[in-house]
């Protein structure tokens, strides 16, 4: 296993852990019956889940840095396309 594939494999484990954490936090039984209004207007159950959406976005942003499965392959495929078009 090369250094970069080792790093990517470690990245996959980190992202898997974060996704599982998000799924656990998604089942927020502790907010189930709370009528607290965050900032005076947003029910906490809604605010919590909006934060889960933000957390998901950050997790996937991290995934693009540490666990992305492929390099930039677009160039190779574009060249292939141009060759096919030229035939």
């Amino acid at each position: 296993m090369t250094g970069s594939s080792k790093a990517a494999s470690k990245g996959v484990w980190i992202i898997s852990g974060l996704v599982v954490l998000l799924l656990i936090l998604h089942q927020d039984n502790w907010n189930w019956e709370s009528d607290t209004l965050v900032f005076g207007f947003m029910p906490i159950g809604l605010f919590w889940h909006a934060c889960i959406s933000l957390g998901a976005s950050l997790t996937w942003a991290l995934a693009t840095f540490i666990a992305w499965p492929f390099g930039d392959d677009g160039q190779a495929f574009q060249e292939n396309n141009q060759q096919e078009a030229g035939k």
């Binding site: 996704v19 998000l22 799924l23 998604h26 927020d28 159950g45 809604l46 919590w48 889940h49 909006a50 889960i52 959406s53 998901a56 976005s57």
Partner: peptide
């Protein structure tokens, strides 16, 4: 609750 059930779950 529909946000958690239908939206934040879809986000993940």
């Amino acid at each position: 609750g529909v946000y958690g059930m239908l939206a934040s779950s879809s986000g993940i």
